[in-house]
Amino acid sequence: MSLKNLKGFVFYVDILGFTALTQNKIQLTEDDFHIWQVSKHFQTSGNQEFAANILILFREILTNCQNKYPKVNFTQLSDCAFVWSENMKDVILSCHTIMWDCLQNGILCRGGIAYGDIIEDHNNNLGQMLLGNAVSKAVKLEQAGAKGCRVLMDQEVPASLNDYDSSFCAEIYKLFQPFENPLDFKVYDEFKWYYSQSLKDLNTTKGIIQATVERLCLAAKLQFHPKFNWNVRTPEGSIHVKSSMRFTSANEQNVFNIEHTFDWKELPDSKLRTETNYTRITKKIQDEASSCIIKKGNNIKFPPAP
């Protein structure tokens, strides 16, 4: 067996709520099957077929990302995956792409990313064997107790990325921020992947406004899109969706110096969770952003809708 030792980033990602779904702890409805476009022929399989559709989509997202970043390694294990490489920039970009594409498509994920030793083999028939302290740390970070679609990271990630590619690190450095977990009051380091879809122009007024629109539209999807209805039918799933909606819509200036009028705390009644309402609120976000006010000190403010 040929083993390879390397140093790099490992990103571990897991689908939230999947175990409850496959263990039939969630009662699905016809509307769930309809919004997820599950064929009526397969609906007799209930939760298992529904879960299979989610895994197929998850695999497509991983495959598309792998095609985009061929220097990065990918291994899927049911509802989770490992992503790793010595090319630390591409691991960050892969992490961002996977998290963004999953949430856009109705899959709520949580992740951990770490730097360190990686040991891999080349047995592609059974899937690559993967171990090392970076692997263990990434898994531990994902399971640290944070609620919602966060990506926690170890303290070495920003410094290691800067050593690898200082110009790229400078572009996205604002997205590496600490947060306090309200459950245990511990402070964790986080990659705030949800602040921008493109990870570009984050130091310009136009780029900051666009990134805020993208972030708020993600929050609107969590709040109103019916693809997440199955998640909120368990107490734990409801917490994950609500927490994700809260921090993706948060009106705070730690990353960008911008104020907006969307700061959602509670999820609406299930009857209001429709594609029509989702489309309506995203248009409202875009309309307000188009009239942003630039205040003294380059502060940016969304004006309230008339």
Rank of each mutant, 00 (worst) to 15 (best):
L141D: 08
E142I: 04
Q143G: 07
Q143I: 10
A144L: 12
A146W: 13
G148L: 06
V151E: 05
L152A: 09
L152T: 08
L152D: 04
Q155A: 06
V157E: 14
V157C: 14
P158F: 05
S160L: 08
L161A: 02
L161G: 04
N162V: 09
N162Q: 13
D165E: 10
D165V: 06
S166G: 03
S166D: 09
S167P: 01
F168E: 02
E171W: 00
E171A: 02
I172G: 06
Y173H: 04
Y173R: 13
Y173L: 06
L175M: 04
L175F: 00
E180W: 03
N181E: 12
L183G: 13
D184C: 03
F185V: 09
F185E: 11
K186Y: 07
K186T: 10
E190P: 00
E190F: 00
E190R: 02
F191Q: 01
F191A: 09
K192T: 04
K192H: 09
K192V: 07
K192D: 01
W193F: 08
W193H: 04
Y194V: 11
Y194H: 14
Q197T: 00
S198K: 12
S198R: 05
L199E: 01
D201C: 12
D201I: 01
D201N: 14
D201M: 05
L202F: 03
L202H: 02
L202V: 05
N203P: 11
N203W: 08
N203I: 01
T204N: 14
T205W: 12
K206T: 08
G207W: 08
G207L: 12
G207R: 05
I208C: 07
Q210C: 05
Q210N: 06
Q210P: 02
A211W: 02
T212V: 09
T212A: 14
V213G: 01
E214Q: 07
E214K: 13
R215V: 00
L216A: 12
C217Y: 01
C217F: 00
C217R: 03
C217K: 08
A219S: 07
A219Y: 00
A220E: 06
A220H: 04
L222F: 05
Q223V: 11
Q223T: 10
P226F: 06
P226E: 03
K227F: 12
N229G: 02
N229L: 15
N231L: 13
R233Q: 13
T234Y: 03
G237Y: 08
S238F: 08
S238R: 11
S238D: 13
S238A: 11
V241Y: 05
S243Y: 15
S243G: 07
S243L: 09
S244C: 12
M245D: 15
T248R: 14
S249L: 10
S249A: 07
E252G: 04
E252Q: 10
Q253P: 00
Q253C: 08
N254K: 07
N257H: 13
I258N: 07
H260D: 13
T261N: 06
T261C: 11
